[in-house]
Design a protein around this nucleic acid. Structure first.
Lengths: 194, 194
DNA sequence: TGTATCCTTGACAAGAGTGTCAAATTTGAC
DNA sequence: GTCAAATTTGACACTCTTGTCAAGGATACA
């Protein structure tokens, strides 16, 4: 049984992502990935070279999907609602599923990894910051913020990282949402003037 | 050379802490700890049983020191200054040293560990929340907060976790301080009325 | 001084993970 | 139909790590 690649790359990456999110990069072995994907260890080495390379492919796919999702959540005209939807999307990303998959970039950020992976994680956060910045600096949004858009973007990025850690420790989505609401209230006071 | 314990436990725990903070629990081997402490692997097993036990001792010592430090930082009568000092202390904890040691609890929170370790990490965050809550709920403090003390405490705990992740990714203490100032400005508006 | 106790040390066995490879097999193209 | 190319598979060698243990040596106390 061979000749042409027999596995569906999209499927393999999806299953690998689940394993990496559940166990983290370091604690995941190629055997774990082979079992989860149904592709033999040797085939994975043949196709990707090593675990880091396979992780990078997985991470790239994850990053694209994550950034697209949160960018869409931020699209609305009302910055307060947009920010709320953004945080909702971020929380959904780490809590939907059973068991909750957690945030891949935050989990990876805490591990000792190679330079390439660290660069990718930074890239994701840079992208997140840029997307937030674009939304927060819009006319109609910036004026409603209690702090400059740049500072707000950075604060929100930092805050989402904190949410990811809290999710790992307490596993309480409702509490995450409540904390997120607090931040939104602070950043975009409910009613400028009624 | 034997008969009575030859190593200084305090010294061993301090050196073990440095290794755990640098590599994380999972990526640290007993051999790493033996090399760093100068105590043979067999002796460590004899004294502590296994890596988890040694980690728990290390973590307990770390937690006590960390909570005492931040509690002291929160002591001042002016809640705004106290909060600022608190965040300063938290940032110092993860950035002072070369290389920066990072935040042990945040790093550990992201790893797949046993139930005991997870309980300890939660205990540290619970303690942090309680300390913050006590300071924020004080008369003279609560009134100056833009949100209820309870929500503020939770937000600050979550935020410090985010700072720890950002430290790992960007390694920029100045940026962390700037972000912390933003949060303080939001939580305790500079001047209630001038 | 004798002895029981405890610590240290190095070695051992077992298991897990990595990366490589040759053999087998299948496919697509000529 | 034949052949070259690519993939799968299982095995192999190597390293790292764990946990245990027996032997050796020092200490405290009687």
């Amino acid at each position: 049984m061979a000749g042409v690649r027999r596995f569906d790359e999209e499927d393999v990456l999806a299953k690998a992502e689940a394993v990496f999110r559940a166990k983290g990069f370091g604690a995941t072995s190629m055997l774990d990935l082979a079992c989860a994907t149904g592709v033999q260890r040797g085939s994975l080495y043949h196709a990707y070279g090593d675990k880091e390379e396979l992780f990078l492919r997985t991470f790239g796919r994850y990053e694209a999907r994550f950034l697209a999702t949160v960018a869409q959540a931020l699209e609305g005209p009302d910055i307060r609602l947009a920010l709320q939807a953004f945080l909702e999307a971020a929380i959904d990303n780490m809590t939907s599923g059973s068991p909750a998959p957690g945030c891949l970039s935050t989990r990876t950020a805490g591990e000792p990894t190679g330079a390439r992976i660290r660069t990718e994680v930074r890239g994701l956060l840079d992208g997140l910051d840029a997307i937030l910045m674009a939304a927060l600096a819009r006319p109609g949004a910036a004026e409603r913020l209690a702090v400059p858009a740049e500072a707000a973007a950075r604060l929100v990025v930092t805050f989402t990282r904190g949410l990811a850690v809290m999710e790992r420790v307490y596993g309480d989505p409702a509490a995450l949402r409540a904390t997120a609401r607090t931040l939104v209230d602070l950043l975009v006071p409910p009613d400028p003037a009624v």
